[in-house]
Amino acid sequence: MKQWASSVLGLLFVSSAVVTHAQWLNYKTPGVPRTADGKSKLDALAPRTLDGHPDLSGVWMHEPTSVEEVRRLLGPERTDEGLKTNAPGMEFGTQHKYAFNILADFKPGDSPLRPESAKRSQELAAALSREAPCSLPDVPIGFPSQGLLSEPIKIVQAPRLTMILYELGGHYRQIYVDGRRLPAEFNLPAYFGYSVGHWESDTFIVETAGFNGKTILDGSLHPESEQMRVTERFHRRDFGHLDLEITFNDQKNYTRPFTIRVPHNLLADEDIFEMFNENEKDCAHIGKAQTK
């Protein structure tokens, strides 16, 4: 169990390189409503684009789950193991609970995970405990974990296209809002799938399919398949708050669809950083930890 914990948490935390650079932090972004003391007024009305829809643009961070809550969810052994490698910038308490376990809200015995999928997860965990995470190729952590760890995301809403930029790994998603539909079949599945969006009143609904099935949904190794379809509902409650509801439908791995809700807070006057595959220092230490 100890090895499993260190493998999985190591995979989540180490497959990211170092956030290298920052600039323009605390730059007063034009157009942000402010209080008398110059702080951004986070409870102001959500802004709108020229076409009248809410403007989701901004740098957003999920509401992280406290160390105490992580301890309750993961248990003291896994939490303490993770705390030993509390890497700067990726400290425990800066992630969302669903990055650790996307099925965290389900009671024992009520999990939608199919038994055969649970078995595959266990086999993958065993393989990871034999093989250092650093021997695996540095590929995207994937959806949705890419946006649930310690790094923020940036939404850029352009006409007909909304971009989600992940600070983690420098990856991005393109969400087309130009009326195109998802293809019935995907001849080239992708890590982040293919996304189309539309507006229902003030809620931006994004449908994504075409995942490649090569990544996992969380640090507990819950799988995804190429059949998975994801529906996201973005609602900018006010200037400083974005509510995100994500529904996963993957009948190959789960007996029924399930939904998570992840509130995000605006990081006003901030930006995402450049992040590339450089200056990795952790693998050697993790290898040592695993052989103990």
Binding site: D178, G179, L188, P189, A190, Y191, Y194
Partner: peptide, 13 residues
């Protein structure tokens, strides 16, 4: 390059 879709999709506008 791992993936492709919507190549040759006629872009509106």
């Amino acid at each position: 390059l791992t993936s492709a879709q919507w190549l040759n999709y006629p872009i509106p506008g």
